[in-house]
Nucleic acid binder design. Structure first.
Lengths: 351, 351
DNA sequence: CGGCAAACTGTAAACGTTTACAGAGTGATC
DNA sequence: GATCACTCTGTAAACGTTTACAGTTTGCCG
């Protein structure tokens, strides 16, 4: 029996309205009750400012209406886009979002999947930095539904939605070649990841299909960041002054490369064309604005959220794997046209 | 009695270990137990992969170890900085973070404070867009501790941490005047907010203390955004070609102003100096890099998190209100010096 | 060996809500 | 008036964990 010291409970309301706790629950949840019972319960609840205890509801109902989004670093604009879209999908359905930064630590990714067993979250959307055997094992035994944003082996019985970095990179490098570029360098991010490898595949494929032989000296690998991109570009331009374009693994690196070009009095794109990836706000920040590959971060977030909600709604459908097609958003860093609508860009996609 | 269909419970472990459910709880929570009891319980728990139900723990223990962070828009880099710092403080203490975007809707802000009454969150950090009487009323009756990031009236019995937009704006405008600028325009963001008003106060104060009379025509108000900043700058420069500097309410607006200057073949900073606010990554994205006021977003997030945790640890101390001092990070958009470390900047603060 | 204190253990209740099920009430039909 | 079907209501139990309290066990000391 509750004491009078804490917030009102169904028992407090029942006593005040002169009905049972079951009637209180029925009235407040819209089940059958006589008009007189409804009136008395609603009046008592309003007078006492009764708010049902959500934890107790979760325990009895077997779900919390909370979803977890686990990603490497919320500071990365791609994940911010996903957060926004996940909330756009799930908030109207009454879900709350728990945010979990794994700090790109694989063990933390495993731990968050395992923590589903404590029942405080109804489901999980996970962006792993890479997928190991350990990932596949904990995912197979996850206590609640999981959707992975990223590539999974075909045998993995987990819903997933992924980007297509290969095609995105192909779009970018082809675009550069259509514009006459022949000495195209590549500044890759961390490459011991699926996207890192796919970018390299796309880069080399685009060169090969144009009859060019990829020169390993024109590829450098670095951590993400504006300064890191500038350093990498300086290194490339020091060693290979003839480079006429550079494709970068994200917009931060591309901005850094653009800064390096400016420092060397190279005009963009006349002397050096620059392409980024992710089409974040950073792509529109510089001058000229960056041509950038939009990998559909927000779209992936939205699809993942809808997949997860479908699973939670009792869906027992086949394992789903969707790929979001990339788009090349063309701006002045490759076209050179200067106008008042500098940041808008023209999108080129695969359809 | 639990059925055998769901995950193992304390009762399942107790039956397997041949002890009571109380002994299971005691062993797994490190309370007194005989070695033999410990061994049998731990073995049974390990064999069955037992994970305690977090929701049941929360109900019995009266707390969830979840904190809510409510802010207008996670897409704003200032709030991303806060999220990261809040997690840095709270995650090692075992707290999970619920993220709530209010979409700058005041009624949603009120609703999230009220939702504390459902007990699913132990506390709240709230970034209101403005503080109305309704805010003060729901905050006064909040069912769990709240810390506000923003300015509150002195009479509000709520912990808070705020920026000092007045001083930050003073720093920026003084810096421009120290560099000989006399026609300083001001592109403000939404001004029906406390920060919006404080920026205007700081701008006008700085001009007055230099013996200048603020010209209302040199101040425009706009929504945030790169494109919005460019439009505002074009309007200002069309009407007042003699402007030699522009101070902007955030880095997006400042980038837009810089684009407008480039479009008009105005050199930065020779013809037009530009200063932004927030010192986000955007400030380092353009060329030249922006001088920007760092209002200490991350620091405010960290302080708010520590205030909230102190309250949750039973603290009954006086209401706290802290102000984070701003710093001016000086870069090439006002100094003009071009170098290889283009994005680093030099910080000027109040100490 | 007996007494005492400390440690351990199991039973019952609590946390707050929802709902199955049995019983009571009501209205319609024969 | 009796019967049947439907609606409403209250009691008890469930959800899974923690812990107060009474009883039992163990070890030490005289």
């Amino acid at each position: 029996m509750t004491t009078s010291g804490g917030p009102p409970t169904v028992e407090t309301i029942a006593a005040r309205a002169g009905v049972s706790i079951a009637s209180v629950s029925r009235v407040l949840n819209g089940h059958g009750a006589r008009p007189n019972t409804v009136r008395r319960v609603e009046q008592a609840a309003a007078e006492l400012g009764y708010v049902p205890n959500g934890v107790a509801r979760s325990l009895k109902g077997g779900r919390t209406r909370q979803l977890t989004f686990a990603m490497p670093d919320v500071g990365n604009p791609a994940y911010v886009s996903m957060v926004r879209q996940i909330q756009t999908v799930t908030k109207p359905l009454g879900y709350r979002l728990l945010l979990h930064s794994t700090d790109a630590v694989a063990e933390d990714e495993l731990a968050v999947v395992r923590s589903l067993a404590d029942r405080t979250s109804d489901g999980l959307i996970l962006c792993p930095i890479r997928v190991t055997d350990a990932h596949l094992e904990v995912l197979a035994r996850a206590a609640r539904p999981v959707v992975v944003i990223g590539s999974l082996p075909d045998a993995a019985a987990v819903d997933s939605v992924r980007a297509d970095s290969v095609t995105g990179t192909l779009l970018a490098v082809r675009h550069l070649m259509e514009r006459g570029r022949r000495r195209i360098a590549f500044i890759n991010g961390p490459s011991d990841t699926v996207p890192g490898r796919n970018r390299r595949i796309g880069y080399e494929t685009a060169l090969c299909e144009a009859g060019l032989v990829p020169d390993p000296a024109l590829t450098v690998t670095t951590d993400f960041g504006i300064e890191a991109g500038a350093l990498a570009a300086h290194r490339l331009l020091d060693a290979h002054p003839g480079i006429d374009a550079v494709f970068c693994a994200n917009d931060q690196l591309a901005l850094g490369a653009a800064h390096a070009a400016h420092d060397r009095d190279l005009r963009i794109p006349d002397d050096l064309a620059v392409v980024g990836m992710d089409d974040s706000e950073l792509a529109r920040a510089g001058h000229p604005a960056l041509t950038s590959v939009d990998l559909g971060s927000a779209e992936r977030g939205g699809i993942a959220a809808r997949m997860l909600v479908a699973r939670l709604d009792g869906g027992r459908h086949e394992v789903r794997c969707e790929t979001v097609a990339p788009r090349l958003v063309v701006r002045e860093s490759t076209t050179g046209a200067r106008s008042r609508s500098a940041g808008a860009g023209v999108a080129v996609g695969v359809s």
